[in-house]
Design a protein around this nucleic acid. Structure first.
Lengths: 187, 187
DNA sequence: TAATATAGGGAGGGGGCCTCCGTTTGGCTA
DNA sequence: TAGCCAAACGGAGGCCCCCTCCCTATATTA
């Protein structure tokens, strides 16, 4: 189905350079990094950036596409995992790590979920679908609260990613995730 | 100790008008609302806004000061509450509600905590101090995990507030707070 | 090599942040 | 009541960013 005509050589060169520089810029400054800076450091005019990526979300989506795909695949595989709750936990932790990849990304992803015109919408919606199967299975197994929805679970994974932006230590996501997933109360 | 000279009449008028309009604007557009818009709708030049509130954080702090004060007082009183865990829960829920007051506020508050020059720093630091006493008491009573720090608890309260910005229902904070505080696992 | 679809580039309009400094005015004093 | 001046006002201007539009350049194909 990838019937797209091959790109012209100069176009492909610029496209790839933009992706590389965008990774750096988003990594350094979060998802609000200046697009003009990215164009500049790619040695390209701002118009060229917009030709390839009509919105900031489109650029983000390109940077994350591989990751999204592998997450979707992981969700399918984890449906066969012997422990439903561990499967859910593992998948969510991974989602949290993705969402913590760039500062502000958790926010963008949650916002995209309520905006069908966002270029991130499809990916985020897919995540929602993936998690809902894992949640259902864990709930049926009696390992998850009866009343918790998959939206809530997804949201909390993103909330953990958001929170980890504000914590000094490296493994912030993992630790906070454990607290939320394992509970705060003494056992 | 309020030895501040009384404001000139025009200054006081403008100050109060700015506070009112800022409440509206932050309520409508979140903490990133345009300061020039706030000045305009207050019938005042942008320079006048900056004279009264040198930074966005200073303006925010003014809008929230009363709330911060009453929260500090509540923390002191709750130290006498018969149930340490309920005291902590109640106080945190209230903090979550404050932090959910304006879109983006959770982010500002957490960021302020690591920036001593922020005009929100003092208030946020006070919150941190308040919660640490409540956390210590709950932990000593064996009602909270041994290993959880008060920073983590505070952070999770803000994370819940952040998450509630992305949920349609009205009582989002309360519901998510219950999930985090009560745990996701089946009981 | 010439034609042309494709791609590049950047000026320009819109908006926001914040500072600086010339202008205005409230309130006090004589 | 008039005059003074510290206090307050206000907005132009410099800087940055977003995004569009349209003229220019060029890779590819015939």
């Amino acid at each position: 189905m990838d019937t797209a005509k091959p790109m012209r050589a100069d176009a492909r060169r610029n496209y790839e350079r933009l992706v590389e520089e965008a990774k750096l810029a988003f990594g350094r400054h979060g998802v609000d990094a200046s697009l003009e800076d990215i164009a500049r450091s790619s040695g390209v005019g701002i118009g060229t950036l917009y030709r390839h990526f009509p919105t900031r979300e489109a650029l983000l989506e390109t940077l994350l596409r591989d990751r999204f795909d592998s997450q979707a695949a992981a969700a399918r595989e984890l449906l066969d995992h012997p422990s439903p709750i561990d499967a859910l936990r593992a998948w969510l932790l991974d989602l949290g790590r993705t969402s913590a990849r760039y500062r502000g990304l958790s926010d963008s992803m949650m916002t995209a979920l309520t905006d069908e015109t966002s270029q991130l919408y499809a990916s985020c919606h897919a995540m929602q679908g993936a998690v809902s199967h894992l949640v259902d299975r864990a709930r049926r197994a009696g390992e998850l609260r009866e009343d918790v929805t998959s939206q809530e679970v997804l949201l909390l994974a993103h909330a953990v990613a958001w929170a980890s932006e504000h914590v000094g230590t490296a493994n912030g996501v993992d630790r906070l995730f454990e607290l939320v997933f394992g509970g705060l109360r003494a056992s």
